[in-house]
Design a binder for these strands. Structure first.
Lengths: 206, 206
DNA sequence: AAGTGTGAAAAGTTTCACAGCG
DNA sequence: CGCTGTGAAACTTTTCACACTT
């Protein structure tokens, strides 16, 4: 894998480009210039071209990029050729909202199961995704070879749950606990820290 | 304001340091070295020192940083001396979960009101924060001089709502719509794009 | 002529190493 | 002596400018 020298931020942008390409495809656009796609994605054209160049040559000089083919390539690059199953741990307030959130399915992720210390609680009954007791987490992940997990448990349990997830084979964790998680180098953690984001904003208002 | 040449990422880290300092304070620690605080925050000691140096000199050589005083300074730097009122727009699935989310209050933000096209919907009844019809948004923000908003409306309405927020005086927006928002230069938008974060992870699993 | 691909410059950020202070 | 503050070096990422292809 020569993923080493590609800026991490470029990977994020790839997802954004992919979304824009999908919209273009829906509108039956066949070709798009770096200029137009960059504007849609909110980046500079030169950056878009540089980002795409990390993965190969996709454009035709004088013409632009083929919408469909570029979309497919990015999809494959992101490892999204096939539907990724995801589990969610902690179906509390935020967790159960995420279970109902349509954005994940819309982008082609399937939340196949949720786990909670108290699976019968009122909140979890609303959703159609099955909620299992937390104890079954390890075997489920192993049996279904799940690689992605969304973590919504209270901060004090987060590290313990992460250790179990990692041991069971999870390689990517979307973490909503405001906490620094310790994981081996081959596991990626993405932190979504809502209070932190709000705090960051408050610096910029005068 | 000489906020110009401070790395944006340093601002994020400031919030993290602040949290760590709060924990230390709770444990009655009076002084902390850059080494210890950096480890708690998950950064290199040299980076911590550099970050703090952007704002002045707070440490005592040979000793470390005073926990309480440094906390206060960071708090002021982040513009958090006083409780910041926040409004939330769009009390749907995700929005109403955020209304119930305790993390914001825990970090000293008060979500004072929510607005929704359909304020009487079942979901919004659970929460104690008042949910007003969307039409009252503009006057409320103006009257209460609200500067921060959390945006959870469906993507197709997001830009229109943002225009109203900005016109009413909002300067910071925490945006949960997977959409590029257009705002004037003096308004800051923080995007939390959940599907994007998951997609990003899927690149790193093999 | 239009628009990509890319080396090189610029800008931004992190890390180092050590002088200097308590 | 211990630990901060900081200039300079190293590294990363973005932007530019233009050669090159269709």
């Amino acid at each position: 894998m020569d993923k080493i020298d590609i800026p991490k931020k470029a990977i994020y942008r790839l997802s954004i480009y992919y979304r824009c390409l999908q919209r273009l495809k829906e509108n039956d656009v066949e070709t798009v210039s770096s200029d137009a796609l960059a504007r849609a994605a909110g980046v500079k054209p030169s950056q878009l071209r540089k980002d795409l160049a990390y993965f190969g040559q996709f454009g035709t000089r004088g013409l632009g990029y083929p919408v469909e083919a570029l979309g497919t390539t990015i999809r494959e690059t992101l490892g999204r050729e096939r539907l990724q199953p995801v589990v969610l741990i902690g179906a509390g307030n935020l967790g159960s909202a995420l279970l109902r959130y349509q954005g994940f399915q819309k982008e082609g992720f399937e939340v196949v199961a949720a786990f909670d210390a108290n699976p019968d609680s009122a909140r979890t009954r609303v959703v159609t995704i099955p909620v299992f007791p937390e104890a079954e987490l390890d075997t489920f992940i192993r049996d279904q070879t799940i690689k992605l997990a969304i973590l919504c448990v209270p901060a004090e349990f987060a590290q313990a749950v992460v250790n179990r997830l990692v041991a069971a084979g999870v390689q990517g964790i979307l973490n909503f606990s405001p906490l620094l998680l310790e994981v081996p180098a081959d596991v990626t953690v993405n932190n979504v820290d809502l209070a932190l984001e709000l705090e960051h904003l408050s610096y910029f208002i005068r």
